[in-house]
Each structure stands twice: as C-alpha cells, then as structure tokens.
C-alpha cells in the first residue's frame, strides 16, 4: 500500500509500498517516531482512509474481500461486523453510564434488543473488572476505568480486528499495563487480530510482532520473548 499527502513539491509519502500481515490471536505493535505515518497505516488498514494504491484483503463471511473495492455502505457494514477501535481519548458520552456506552453499540449497530444488549454489555464489563462501575458516568470514573470502558466498547461486538491508536498515552504505566494485558488476552482467547500503534518502547514486551515505520517504510521484528497469554487479575478473557 502507498499513501501520500499534498501535491507537487509538497507531496509527502506517509506509506511507500508497505505490506502488513495480521493474524488471528496476534498482537501486532506498530512503532515509529512522530509523523512517521503510523496513524495513516492504521486508518488505511481499518477502512477509514483509502490508499493511493494497493489493497487491503480480509476474510469476510467465508470469502476474501478487498476492503477498498467495496462501496461506502459495504465498508461501513464490514467495519460493523469486523472492527473495533480504541482511540487516544476515551470518547465516552458524558451523559451515559458505562453500561450504556457498550449497549449503544450493540443496539444501534448489531440491532440487538434491550435485554440481549444489556446482558452482553454487563458480561463484558464484568470481564473488564468494571462490574461495580457499570452505572457510573465518565465523570465518576478514573482514567484507567474510562479506557477500560472504551476497550469494552471496542470488544463488545466481538470484532475480528481491533485497532488501537496510542491506547495508553493518556494513562500512567500501571494502568497502561492493564490495558495491554486486556488487549493481549482478547487476541489470544478470542482469536482476534490486534493492531496497536504506539511510540512507547515499554509496550514491546507485550507484542507478538513489532513493526517499525520510518519515512514510509516498514520493518518487521518478531518477538520470541512475547509472554504467554496472560490471565488477568481482573477476570480476563480466559
């Protein structure tokens, strides 16, 4: 895939003939300096930003599809079925409780009825150790709890791909570790592909595969020391 921004003399390549493979059950970490195109690669892979050239293939309902050959509504449906996102900010609705932040995705996206959406959202919050916080609104939650709610919102529809953009940047390292452990647990126990963008070296020990992006080019580094699937102190995804 390639992707550039600007025209003429101002044209700058964020991605130059980049190839990435994401596998089920794997946590892939994308590292690189600021402005190296990390977020661009995440956006292209996740169906949010079209590449200038190249394709993004994925398994969808038993067949291989090109995400960027789809129409906009088809791609929206694809994202609904397969992708979860965790962004830098928590982006939680101030008026809604933790439980409702998850329910809204299930009701509006998957079209579940109230009872089923509630049951699945409660189950997810319980797994994330947020059982006691389910009726609280964002203003009543700590930063770590808010990010866990955001993770719950990304995981609750059971996506195939989870894209996380600097998911720990607003957290201290203690809370950041909890987030990474949760993501790893999701990758291993749910056979999801996790793609994390970060510039924090401390994350490397949690990744199965590490990509380095520099001036639009990608290098791969496998992590033989990646820890075994972690079972969380707060009931994880075991």
């Amino acid at each position: 895939m390639s992707r550039s921004f600007g025209d003429g003399a101002l044209k700058r390549f964020a991605l130059r003939d980049v190839t990435v493979d994401l596998f089920p059950g794997q946590l892939a970490l994308l590292m690189g300096p600021s402005g190296s195109g990390k977020s661009t690669l995440l956006a292209v892979l996740s169906g949010l930003l079209p590449p200038d050239s190249g394709q993004v293939f994925a398994e969808d309902q038993g067949r291989t599809v090109d995400v960027w050959a789809m129409t906009d509504p088809e791609r929206e449906q694809f994202r609904l079925r397969h992708t979860g996102f965790i962004f830098q900010g928590y982006n939680l609705f101030p008026a809604l409780t933790a439980l409702q932040q998850l329910e809204i995705v299930l009701k509006w996206g998957a079209g579940l009825d109230n009872a089923e959406a509630r049951s699945r959202a409660e189950d997810m919050l319980k797994r994330l150790g947020l059982d006691q916080q389910k009726s609280k609104k964002p203003a009543q939650l700590s930063g770590g709890e808010k990010q866990r709610v955001a993770i719950g919102r990304a995981l609750v529809k059971d996506p195939t791909f989870i894209f996380a953009d600097e998911p720990t940047s607003a957290l201290d390292w203690e809370n950041g570790k909890v987030v990474l452990e949760l993501l790893r647990a999701a990758a291993h126990s749910r056979q999801a592909s996790i793609f994390v963008v970060s510039h924090d070296d401390r994350m490397k020990e949690y990744a199965d595969v590490i990509y380095h992006l520099n001036e639009g080019r990608l290098e791969v580094e496998h992590n033989p020391a990646a820890p075994a699937p972690i079972h969380l102190p707060v009931e994880g995804f075991s």
Partner: peptide, 18 residues
C-alpha cells in the same frame, strides 16, 4: 461537542442515520 463520541461510533460501523 459530541463529535468525537459520534466519530467513534461511526468508526465502529454504526450507521450515520442512527
């Protein structure tokens, strides 16, 4: 003021009409 929250829902594939 809720644009970021709505954008997150859109990223998750929630239809804009909702």
């Amino acid at each position: 003021a809720s644009a970021r929250e709505f954008a997150t829902l859109l990223a998750l594939g929630i239809p804009r009409k909702k």
